[in-house]
Nucleic acid binder design. Structure first.
Length: 369
DNA sequence: AAATCCGACAACCGCATCGGA
DNA sequence: TTCCGATGCGGTTGTCGGATT
């Protein structure tokens, strides 16, 4: 593989850099001189370089990267060696797409800590800060751009909590149901991350409790402003999946929420799996002072507005979530029409009992809810 | 079939922090 | 206390391959 040198911001150490040496620190000047003497390589690593690095670390262990760079025969900086090892060669690096669990964890932790990639990565075994950072920039920020909101804004965070996270939970629940069906006699234990996530689901930062917590402040008076329930909303859910879309068009980024059909709701309900779900919502509504709330016709919510309209409106995403919660109280109406194509059918809807079921599943995995 | 676009990811850079001399 | 080298972190950019035109 050929190595780039010279041109461009990554090309590095040319005449321009030398000319800038007047304002360089002593450390930088020394580095520059060393680089020039050693004809340092840049760009993609070759197989031979990888082998050299791995062999050296196998013999001498990690750390002391500058010494490693000098002694290993690699014409790379210590920094470059460290990065290559930590982000690519280290044996416990996990390859492949991030699982829904991992994506959910990233969203949760980022909402807590912001761009503390290294700290977030510590909670995702085998994943690197670089990988998480790339995920955030390519997937999450892309959605924010297309919604024309800032990725760090409250509005976008609400959208993530209310639409993105539930979808990830759905994927997780769906996967678990499939696994259970595949080996009904001896279901496998849930992945360790489930426990972590279930614990979070039981904490104030979970997507299921957050909306209840937010609802306490939404509208200022400890409840949802009445107009929220009459705000015409058509939800365009955010797609958390690795991009398989073929167009960068505004609608392509917001596919309908898939249905929960795999969960066989009829069976779950008849088997009593949903018992207690109503109680969750009842108590939530009670805490909001919304006992006996009449939400009117579900058709109210099948309107022509877009998520963007909604985001631009005065109500918050958490208010929407509260509304969905209230729907569970009111009999399980469908509130989120997945209808950018105008089709309100085809299972592209979320019901409150579906959300609750996902929450219950998390509780089963981790005993959290 | 060729050109262009775009997403994903590897890699680099600058700066901050830490620890030892 | 200060200096300096090593290391870590977050932002940014280049490259590549697949999809689209």
């Amino acid at each position: 593989m050929s190595q780039r040198r010279g041109a461009g911001p990554m090309g590095g150490l040319g005449a321009a850099a030398a000319a800038a040496s007047a304002v360089m620190s002593k450390q930088q000047q020394q580095q520059l001189e060393a680089d020039e003497m050693m004809e340092l390589r840049r760009g993609p690593w070759t197989l031979e370089e990888d082998n050299l690095l791995m062999n050296y670390i196998a013999c001498h262990g990690e750390g002391r990267w500058n010494l490693l760079a000098r002694c290993s025969g690699l014409k790379r900086t210590g920094k470059s060696c460290r990065l290559r090892w930590l982000n690519y060669l280290k044996p416990d690096i996990k390859r492949g797409n991030l699982t829904p669990e991992e994506q959910l964890l990233i969203l949760e932790l980022h909402s807590k800590w912001g761009n503390r990639w290294s700290r977030i990565a510590q909670h995702l075994p085998g994943r690197t800060d670089n990988e998480i950072k790339n995920y955030w920039r390519t997937r999450v920020q892309k959605q924010a751009r297309q919604l024309k909101v800032d990725a760090n804004s409250t509005v976008f965070r609400d959208a993530v909590r209310c639409y993105w996270m539930p979808r990830l939970l759905e994927k997780m629940a769906s996967t678990t149901v499939h696994q259970a069906a595949a080996s009904a006699a001896d279901p496998p234990p849930p992945p360790p991350l489930h426990h972590h996530l279930a614990a979070m689901a039981a904490s104030s930062s979970s997507p299921f409790d957050t909306h209840l917590q937010h609802a306490d402040t939404c509208g200022g008076g400890g409840g949802v402003p009445p107009n929220v329930y009459h705000h015409h909303v058509q939800v365009h859910p955010i797609d958390p999946s690795p991009s398989t879309s073929t167009s960068a068009g505004s609608t392509a980024a917001l596919p309908p929420v898939p249905c929960f059909s795999e969960l066989r709701w009829d069976q779950l309900q008849s088997s009593g799996e949903l018992d207690g779900a109503a109680g969750v919502f009842d108590s939530a509504l009670g805490s909001l002072g919304l006992d006996g709330l009449d939400l009117g016709s579900p058709a109210e919510y099948y309107s022509d507005s877009t998520l963007l309209d909604y985001l631009n409106s005065s109500c918050t995403g958490s208010a929407m979530m509260t509304m969905m919660t209230a729907s569970g109280h009111g009999g399980g109406y469908n509130y989120c029409g997945g209808a950018m194509d105008g089709d309100h059918h085809g299972g592209s809807t979320w019901r409150a009992d579906e959300l609750c079921q996902a929450a219950r599943k998390l509780g089963e995995w981790g005993g959290g809810i």
